[in-house]
């Protein structure tokens, strides 16, 4: 089996679909394009598609990922894929595949890049260690926001309580806040940017709200980057159209 890694974005109304919805949307898009995707064995064969870290429902993203497995018999040495489905009698290259998939996806989702993956890389869910988030806090002023950010960064601990498997657990998310800064004014408030650890679990911007501005509402949120670690340095699984230089600094404080 040969694997392809796809980078795509998710903006607008479609961002209110869930992670489960995304799986169905992708399965249908792949069938519509007629990609010769590999299937799992067994009683209920499923297409071999694996998704990265779940994006919380309602959050937009500049960079989401999924891996698609295809049968080796249909992938040529040059990376071209001959389809057996709708694209039969032809072969499609990665550029074509990107365009066809974008057309088959709903408005608000576009494929930005596709790469063939060599060897057997780890799963996206395991490999992504940091996510960069851009989020808006409604009706919060710039000065208040800067004060709140300074307080959060100065805190020794940020204790959050959450339900986990029916039980309440309390944990410190301060170690997960790798960077946090005010980035300017948005449509309805102030825009912040944060690098939050995705390991041991994905910490979300909404969890910072209790410390940043408990009386305010969280506005639009965008996951702008996901980072994996390679030779000790953070790198995107596939660089996006406008990816800044990887951060050298793991923790800003």
């Amino acid at each position: 089996m040969i694997r392809f890694r796809v980078r795509f974005d998710k903006h607008g109304k479609i961002r209110f679909t869930s992670h489960r919805d995304m799986a169905r949307i992708w399965e249908r898009a792949i069938r519509r394009v007629g990609l010769p995707v590999a299937y799992t064995e067994g009683f209920t064969p499923r297409p071999r598609i694996s998704f990265g870290l779940a994006l919380p429902t309602g959050y937009a993203s500049d960079g989401e990922y999924l891996d698609i497995g295809m049968d080796e018999s249909v992938v040529g040495a040059d990376g071209t894929v001959s389809g057996t489905g709708v694209a039969s009698e032809t072969s499609i290259d990665l550029i074509q595949m990107k365009e066809q998939l974008s057309r088959a996806l709903p408005v608000g989702m576009n494929v930005q890049a596709i790469e063939m993956i060599e060897g057997r890389p780890g799963s996206l869910q395991e490999e992504v260690v940091i996510c960069t988030w851009r989020f808006e806090i409604r009706e919060l002023g710039d000065i208040e926001a800067r004060g709140a950010v300074a307080d959060v960064l100065a805190a020794d601990r940020l204790m959050v309580t959450r339900q986990r498997k029916g039980r309440e657990t309390t944990e410190d998310i301060r170690p997960a806040v790798l960077s946090l800064a005010v980035k300017g004014k948005g449509d309805t408030g102030v825009i912040l940017e944060a690098d939050l650890a995705a390991k041991p679990r994905l910490v979300r911007p909404s969890e910072l709200m209790a410390f940043l501005a408990p009386d305010h509402e969280l506005g639009p949120v965008t996951r702008t980057h996901q980072w994996i670690e390679q030779d000790g340095a953070p790198r995107e699984p596939i660089p996006g159209p406008a990816t800044p230089a990887p951060r050298a600094q793991r923790r800003a404080s």
């Binding site: 209110f16 429902t57 608000g108």
Partner: peptide
């Protein structure tokens, strides 16, 4: 009415029911 509906959606279950966007 989308701009008035949008801020309500993070507060409700299964917000994708209200976005339309079907093929």
């Amino acid at each position: 009415l989308w701009s008035r509906l949008e801020p309500l959606l993070p507060r409700v279950q299964k917000p994708a029911r209200y976005i339309g966007c079907e093929d």
